[in-house]
Design a binder for these strands. Structure first.
Ligand SMILES: Nc1ncnc2c1ncn2[C@@H]1O[C@H](COP(=O)(O)OP(=O)(O)OP(=O)(O)O)[C@@H](O)[C@H]1O
Length: 669
DNA sequence: CCGGCTGGTTTTTTT
DNA sequence: AACCAGCCGG
């Protein structure tokens, strides 16, 4: 393999194979490139692909690295080496070993909505409703506890009363999850750590399998993830991690920069490599990024430089309001596409929070500029998709009472609160699932004939489907049949009264079913798992690799690790980016790192926008420019006057110019 | 039991 | 402005 393209420290990192390695380097210095080349080199040296584990932060990143590897090494067979996220990896482990931890191996994955439902129920049952101790508070407190590998009992034993309450809710929450054979995102990781603690033989088997481990974006790992890697690496210490403390943007969910900064202490003999040449951005963009991040005090200073030309100045667009901001942005993108021939797929619009995407979408659509949105809210979170998935969940995991409750009366089957109470009482007295209770004669005696008829219809469809799903193959067709037989697809018209809405919802459900085509030979569980663990965007990209694509819209968080020749960062207003919530919690530094990540996505052209007036919660309000705009060196930024530069000439202007020219040159013809 | 209405709430960021 | 939970009349 040709390593001549790499610089000296990069090559050193690639050629390092045995023992702990830390590459601590700034944005765009080729950290991910190093990991990719390093895996290649190892394979060339005869290390077996099945002994290599690559961990990334998102599924998109995992897929991308896999693609790059297969391009470099055409002989490599798919699935031979393991490249996945922490969550997917742990899920795979648990599919084999969940029994040992008191779950069935067909466990389902509880998403955030499921967690909310359970916690809400507990708060009501336990009468701990309180203004401060609300559902989101418990969700995040429990999540933090799990990331720190704390057990409910430890919290309950705490001296602080609020921690005792958290411990109590945490304990009930775990019990409920277990009853329903569900595992939440945090538990996917935590349970694997528990498994490794409890079962030395299982641990040994995984240590022998994954002899070489590589982790990208290591600055975003939490305590639990670091512990997991520590278990896996055993006494081999063939652990290579790569990251940038300045790009740590997940502190709010337990990520701890200490993991990367203290890595050499935890693993003595660590080879530490720093990369300082940035290959991504022009000098002006890089200098801007460096200056802003220098405002953070607590950091490992780095000397980043770029061998590229200075390039364009950064353009600041100050729009009158949010609508104008979106219009100007779209105008700029179109102008660069038309005049400079930059394809739309090389452009990105980045924002701090998801809701800013809507206006952008509208203005792009108005101009028929192609775009795609990356985001969790985009697809899987939609109600009709969650309902459709709910039907599948009770097939894959009949103990999933949350899914049962969600779908049993969607479309309406005459099963309201009263009837639900009866079903619940029956399932409790008979110690069976609510689903099984539907077949109980004592319960059925209590129901009206109409409801009984609906239930029989439901059960018949369920049984037919369960039988079909038991043998692999024809997944999409089976899903389609089940959702039709059970009356869900047909019921959409009743559920969503407005005609147009019901059509879009139906389209989405059909798209959901279609997305199962690519796993036609796999089990239902695998399909549901992918649905919970990866967002829709990944899967859409899977299908049409060759789509010429459009402008990418996403949050700054989602953009980490990516790069775009032209990048627009929108909504640069104080309290929006940096977000007010972070400011009140003393998290400006992390917001600044987020801005640093955003700026360093750009290769050649960087635009920053803000609106002078913006509507929030339906009310117009004046804004102040983001402090990050002020921290930017003024000599690197030029203000765009959108009125003269980017607005297409109006009819009147064209006519006036024409007249003027005619008067001057064409008078007598 | 259903569906429509009202009033309160909402916007961080994600696997 | 958009979404939801909770309430009430059919
Ligand atoms: N030695 C090199 N010569 C030329 N280009 C390089 C070299 N190393 C990396 N690059 C290019 O630099 C860009 C950034 O690389 P990469 O994504 O690996 O950086 P990174 O450090 O992982 O970035 P980030 O911190 O933003 O995740 C890529 O386009 C890559 O192809």
């Amino acid at each position: 393999m040709d390593l001549s393209r790499l610089n000296e420290p990069q090559r050193e990192a690639v050629l390092h194979v045995e023992g702990p390695l830390l590459v601590l380097a700034g944005a765009g210095t080729g950290k991910t490139t190093v990991i990719t080349f390093r895996i290649c080199k190892m394979l060339e040296n005869g290390i077996k692909p099945e002994n290599i584990l690559g961990v990334t932060f998102t599924n998109k990143a995992a897929k991308e690295m896999e693609e790059r590897l297969h391009k470099l090494l055409p002989w490599l067979k798919r699935g031979q080496l393991t490249m996945s996220t922490f969550h997917s990896f742990c899920c795979r482990v648990l599919r084999r070993h969940a029994k040992k931890l008191g779950y069935n191996n067909n466990f389902g994955i509880a998403d955030e909505g499921d967690t909310t439902d359970i916690i809400r129920e507990i708060i009501i049952d336990r009468h701990i409703k309180n203004k401060e101790l609300n559902t989101p508070y418990f969700i995040s407190a429990i999540s933090n506890a799990k990331n720190d590998l704390k057990e409910p009992a430890e919290l309950r034993a705490s001296k602080r009363s609020f921690l005792q309450v958290v411990g109590e809710v945490y304990q009930y929450y775990e019990e409920r999850l277990r009853q329903m054979n569900l595992i939440d995102f945090d538990d996917l990781l935590r349970l694997v750590v528990k498994l490794f603690e409890q079962e030395p033989k299982v641990l040994k088997a995984y240590q022998d399998k994954f002899q070489y481990i590589m982790v990208d974006e290591y600055q975003d790992t939490n305590h639990c993830q670091a512990k997991l890697l520590n278990f896996l690496t055993g006494t081999r210490y063939n652990l290579a991690v790569v990251g940038d403390d300045d790009q740590s943007i997940y502190g709010w969910r337990g990520a701890d920069i200490a993991n990367i900064l203290d890595f050499p202490n935890r693993y003595p003999n660590t080879t530490v490599i720093k990369l300082e040449e940035n290959y991504r951005s022009t000098n002006i963009i890089l200098r801007a990024a460096n200056e802003v991040i220098a405002c953070n005090t607590k950091r490992h200073g780095k000397a980043l430089w770029s061998g590229q030309e200075n390039g364009d100045l950064i353009t600041l667009i100050e729009a009158e309001d949010g609508d104008k901001e979106a219009e100007y942005t779209a105008d700029v993108l179109r102008a660069y596409n038309v005049d400079k021939k930059i394809p739309y797929s090389d452009m990105a619009i980045l924002y701090r929070s998801n809701h800013l995407s809507r206006r952008m979408e509208q203005s792009l659509r108005k101009r028929t500029i192609p775009y795609r949105i990356v985001g969790s809210k985009a697809f899987y979170e939609r109600r009709e998709i969650k309902d459709a998935a709910g039907y599948l969940r009770i097939i894959a995991n009949p103990m999933d009472e949350l899914a049962f409750r969600r779908i049993i009366n969607v479309p309406p089957r005459g099963i309201g609160t009263k009837c639900m109470e009866k079903i619940e009482a029956c399932s409790q007295s008979k110690k069976c699932t609510m689903l099984a209770a539907l077949r109980d004669d004592e319960l059925r005696k209590l129901l009206s004939p109409k409801v009984k008829g609906e239930i029989d219809h439901f059960l018949a469809a369920y049984d037919t489907a369960a039988l079909k799903f038991a043998t692999p193959g024809n997944l999409a067709e089976n899903i389609n049949e089940f959702l039709n037989d059970v009356g869900y697809v047909g019921g959409l018209k009743k559920i969503y009264k407005k005609h147009e809405e019901s059509l879009t919802r139906q389209e989405n459900v059909l798209e959901f079913i279609d997305s199962a085509l690519s796993f036609n030979e796999k089990a239902l569980l695998d399909f549901l798992e992918i649905n919970s663990l990866t967002d829709a965007q990944d899967r859409v990209n899977d299908k049409n690799d060759d789509d010429e694509g459009g402008v990418t819209l996403m949050t700054v968080h989602a953009s980490k690790g990516l790069e775009f020749p032209l990048t627009v960062i929108v909504g640069l207003e104080q309290n929006l980016f940096p977000h007010e919530r972070s400011l009140s919690e003393g998290g400006v530094d992390e917001e600044r790192r987020l801005f640093y990540v955003a700026v360093t996505r750009a290769k050649k052209h960087l635009f920053l926008t803000r609106a002078i007036k913006r509507q929030t919660f339906g009310k117009q309000g004046h804004t102040r420019p983001s402090q990050f705009l002020i921290e930017l060196p003024p000599d690197l930024v030029e203000r765009a006057d959108m009125k003269t530069f980017f607005k297409p000439a109006s009819q009147e202007q064209v006519a006036a110019t024409f007249d003027m020219l005619m008067n001057r040159y064409g008078g007598d013809s």
